[in-house]
Design a binder for these strands. Structure first.
Length: 261
DNA sequence: TTGTGTTTTATTGCCTCC
DNA sequence: GGAGGCAATAAAACACAA
């Protein structure tokens, strides 16, 4: 066999290519080539029919991975942008056009969908995290406001009592029981948070997106919209709010929702 | 140059759909 | 049951700091 012969391993279902001595055509380095260079250095790319030519096969040699050229990737990206799933006919056409095996095109799309999904999940994570942080900051300011109002109530009650005593006679009004005030504030908090979730501006982009649950590239998300009570996502916030009511000066990091198991 | 972390290409095994 | 999708994973290719 000609030692300079280029072939690929059919058992691998790819066009992994090696010269006859078993060395890959481009060993090491950064094999970023344009199509012209590719065709010069990869005779197997010159005709897609050759990819199916049994004479090109040699089953005994090891296989190596081969990166796609920027041109191939560009074309695949464009196809993916148009439609992220491949019809069989489109797969065959694309494979022919790019000088690849249909299997490679399918694999590329599969991996591309996986990368896309990862990106979406990362974005959802970021949105939820910032939404959570923003809610937490609301909780903080509401708690402060609550403390202020409680102090005001105490002060006004005292003033009232003083006036009643000064006017002669026993005070008619009793101070509010201490546990009443926190309940009021939690109620306020829930109302306010719900307002944020349902209002059109200022809150998380995730919960406010108008798209349905299906995954469409611009503005889609893995977060369900209508079918799940949104408060389920934020229930730990409410719990945190209540906890903060009871232990408002606890030090240390709040336990983020992303830390749940 | 080399060690190491990341990205890309490809396989495997399981699942669903027709 | 075959085709195609996905998750998990392997391993080559690549990037980059030391």
């Amino acid at each position: 066999m000609d030692s300079s012969r280029v072939f690929f391993d059919p058992s691998y279902h790819t066009n992994m290519l090696f010269v006859g001595n078993g060395d890959p055509v481009f060993r090491g380095g950064r094999s970023v080539m344009n199509m012209e260079e590719t065709l010069k250095r990869r005779p197997f790319f010159s005709s897609s029919e050759e990819l199916y030519d049994e004479d090109y096969y040699d089953e005994q040699l090891p296989e190596k991975k081969r990166r796609l050229t920027p041109e191939q990737v560009n074309m695949l990206e464009k196809s993916f942008e148009a439609e992220n799933k491949l019809e069989p006919e489109q797969k065959t056409q694309l494979a022919k056009k790019l000088g690849l095996q249909p299997r490679q095109v399918a694999v590329w799309f599969q991996n591309r969908r996986a990368r896309w999904k990862t990106k979406l999940l990362e974005r959802d994570f970021d949105h939820l995290k910032s939404s959570y942080e923003s809610l937490l900051s609301d909780v903080d300011s509401i708690c402060k406001e609550n403390d202020k109002l409680k102090a005001e109530i105490v002060s006004l009650t005292e003033k009232l009592q003083t006036k009643e005593v000064a006017a002669g006679g026993a005070p008619k009004s009793e101070p509010l029981p201490a546990d009443v005030v926190p309940h009021v504030s939690i109620l306020q908090l829930n109302v306010k948070v719900e307002d944020r979730l349902s209002s059109g501006s200022g809150g998380s982009a995730v919960v406010e997106e108008e798209d349905g649950p299906q995954l469409v590239d611009s503005g889609d998300s893995y977060l369900p919209k209508d079918d799940i009570d949104r408060r389920n996502y934020f229930s730990p916030v409410f719990a945190a709010a209540e906890q903060q009511q009871h232990h408002p000066h606890d030090d240390g990091e709040p336990l983020g929702w992303w830390a749940w198991s």
